[in-house]
Design a protein around this nucleic acid. Structure first.
Lengths: 191, 191
DNA sequence: GTCTATAACTGGATAGAC
DNA sequence: GTCTATCCAGTTATAGAC
């Protein structure tokens, strides 16, 4: 009867967690199956290959990013305040970041090295954020090129801070630097 | 007669390359042995385990960092100019960074996720750079705490830029952002 | 649709000849 | 010291019973 089950969703959710914690190469399908409470062999009914599951996990992460952006857009009208909220929300994850790194940056970096196909989709996780940030800068009156440059500058600061926060296992780094970024945005003149 | 051979050095050199290109988890001992021109089984005469070889590779990277710092110190007296030279030299690798990421940041991030023992030693690659940069800021008259904060801020900008350069495979990002950092240092007032 | 058993393969590590 | 052959554990993936 092709009755529905939530196994597929559970596998994706578990995959999100474990891939974040251990990276793709450090994770076996058995790890994911166990976390999801699904027998190993059953995974292949829902996903043709490990790469296929990874792709679904990345797609889910992307949906999360887009949902967050949409939520900020729906509740805040001023582009500058939107950027500040974007920074503030990212900064909330600092305890997790200190343990596992940025969920988007770490996967983009790991997969960017070798996994040809997945590299692009993982990179999109940063690309969509760059585009959204750039759109806010444009809305603030910057020309398209300059907006994109500023977006990269902001994302780079966030990603680099996350990397050091992770490497030094020190959430206070992220707290301080993200507050600095917030102040910079608040005060920034956009000639 | 225990005659010397350069096999150990070749293995470390090959390991430096391959680990940078593929990450630790993406690299087999066979990969390294092949690149070094050493039979697989022979690797174990020089290194007890794969982790042991990785540790030697990281130690080599650290020596490279320290040699570069020492060289800058020996040729440039002014701390501000030393920092600018530090940024300039790092920026020279931008083509490689666009392909494989920062050799220090990527390994720190990968090993920081799971490898307990190696994580610390990989993290040291960034720690020694932070300390050296902080020492230059101190020499410029900043108190110890503030110098450390500025060092983290600078390294974060460099690391984040490297990550985006890698993810977007675009060396021009690194060129532009590192030049910006250089100008910022040159103009920075240190009250 | 679900699950067990297992095939096929990869990769770290060792034994032992030379 | 050097190298070949091989063991063994873990992992992806499949076959086939239920």
């Amino acid at each position: 009867m092709a009755r529905r089950s939530d196994k597929r969703e559970r596998l994706i959710a578990a995959g999100c967690e474990v891939l974040y914690e251990q990276g793709l190469r450090g994770t076996s399908l058995a790890d994911i199956a166990e976390r999801a409470g699904v027998p190993l062999g059953n995974v292949y009914y829902y996903f043709k290959t490990k790469e296929d599951l990874a792709r679904a996990v990345i797609a889910q992460r992307r949906l999360n990013i887009e949902a967050r952006s949409a939520d900020i857009e729906a509740t805040i009208a001023d582009p500058r305040e939107r950027l500040r909220e974007f920074i503030r929300r990212a900064g909330e994850a600092r305890t997790q970041v200190a343990t596992y790194g940025c969920p988007y940056g770490t996967i983009a970096q790991e997969l960017g090295k070798t996994e040809g196909v997945l590299a692009t989709e993982a990179g999109d996780l940063l690309r969509v954020q760059r585009d959204w940030v750039a759109a806010q800068y444009e809305a603030l009156g910057l020309p398209c090129d300059e907006a994109k440059i500023r977006a990269i500058e902001l994302l780079a600061a966030m990603q680099g801070t996350s990397l050091l926060t992770h490497t030094f296992c020190d959430a206070s780094i992220m707290k301080r630097e993200f507050e600095r970024l917030d102040r910079r945005i608040a005060a920034q003149s956009l000639q």
